[in-house]
């Protein structure tokens, strides 16, 4: 069976697992095209107005895929860390898609929640296996293979500091070439905070990573920071942040600021209409404004963003941090 995976949202975190898992079950995985103008336009037209930009983009990817596949994989993701949640829009995603987009192939919308315990991940896989008519034995084997692959991928991502960036049609997972060039000791280091589906989608992020790298800046994102450092960083908060992605952002910032790690600047790329980001952004701003040890900028992206204004801010910010290092 051809199973379609939209190149959006949690694709940037779980694609290594999904691809391996479906292939181990004997299916073919088909990805949507990298985000482009048409995908964005379709998403904007079809999604409900209240949705945030990345969710709208997801709609566009579904449109791009739906006629090329036998089934679409749109999991109902509730929680990806024990005792934590992700944004409720993910919970309603399969329903939003079903109600907004006509003529869809069957949708595999199994729940994924590991709020109570890590077994939830296996339960998720089992439910997919059952839906596709596989034996539990085969599903379990595919699950173990895929989990191993995901874990080894994540490990190498951190060790090699490899950002999950697609190059053209090729997925970040297939493209094994290390994209992190050799940065000298003197290279500026910038911590780029943002949800994976915003910062790694070259179209949506207006290629912020590529632009920074072209200036010779070493880009650090939460995905290449060791997990224990993220949780160490997020412990500085008075109250636990129960959104996993938000926690990762705050954890990264605190780890670099309080942990004495050298960093030249922090960029928070937030998307318009993101509820959790509005709070995370405020927390970051307060934390940084209090002592201002590190230059900080928040850039909001939305479907109307002009690239010119975006570049101006980015260039000015780099001028700012360069000026700071000369002092």
């Amino acid at each position: 069976m051809r199973i379609g995976i939209p190149r959006a949202l949690f694709y940037y975190l779980y694609y290594p697992f999904w691809k391996t898992f479906f292939e181990a079950l004997g299916h073919q995985v088909i990805l949507s095209n990298p985000t482009n103008k048409k995908i964005l336009k379709d998403g904007l037209e079809l999604a409900v107005d209240d949705a945030c930009l990345p969710v709208k983009v997801f709609h566009g990817h579904v449109v791009d895929l739906k006629d090329k596949v036998d089934a679409l994989y749109i999991p109902r993701i509730i929680s990806i860390e024990p005792k934590e949640f992700i944004c409720p829009k993910f919970l309603g995603l399969p329903d939003m898609i079903k109600s907004s987009i006509p003529d869809l192939p069957p949708i595999i919308d199994s729940d994924l929640s590991i709020y109570k315990n890590k077994r939830g991940f296996y339960e998720h896989a089992k439910s997919i296996g059952t839906k596709l008519g596989h034996t539990e034995k085969l599903t379990a084997r595919a699950f173990r293979t895929a989990l191993k692959k995901l874990n080894s991928y994540k490990k190498s991502q951190i060790i090699e500091e490899r950002l999950p960036l697609d190059s053209g049609q090729k997925s970040f997972f297939e493209d094994y070439q290390s994209k992190n060039q050799n940065y000298g000791e003197s290279a500026l280091k910038v911590l780029l905070l943002g949800h994976p589906y915003n910062i790694y989608d070259n179209y949506i992020s207006m290629n912020i990573i590529g632009k920074l790298q072209r200036y010779g800046v070493k880009v650090i994102t939460p995905e290449i920071i060791p997990t224990q450092n993220l949780s160490a960083g997020s412990r500085y908060l008075n109250k636990k942040l129960f959104w996993t992605l938000g926690k990762n952002l705050i954890g990264s910032a605190y780890y670099y600021m309080d942990g004495g790690q050298p960093i030249d600047g922090i960029i928070h790329l937030a998307s318009f209409g993101c509820g959790p980001d509005s709070i995370v952004g405020e927390l970051l701003e307060r934390k940084i404004a209090r002592s201002r040890p590190v230059p900080f900028i928040r850039i909001n992206i939305d479907e109307h963003s002009g690239e010119e204004g975006f570049n101006t801010r980015l260039e000015a910010f780099l001028d700012l941090i360069e000026g700071g290092s000369r002092r």
């Binding site: 201002r292 230059p295 900080f296 900028i297 909001n300 939305d302 109307h304 204004g309 101006t312 801010r313 000015a316 910010f317 001028d319 700012l320 000026g323 700071g324 002092r327």
Partner: peptide, 21 residues
Amino acid sequence: QDSKIIILRDGVVVDFAMNTV
């Protein structure tokens, strides 16, 4: 068509903002 604020300390730009939409 745009407005900005630039914050400087000791002769160095430390922060800035521009109007958005």
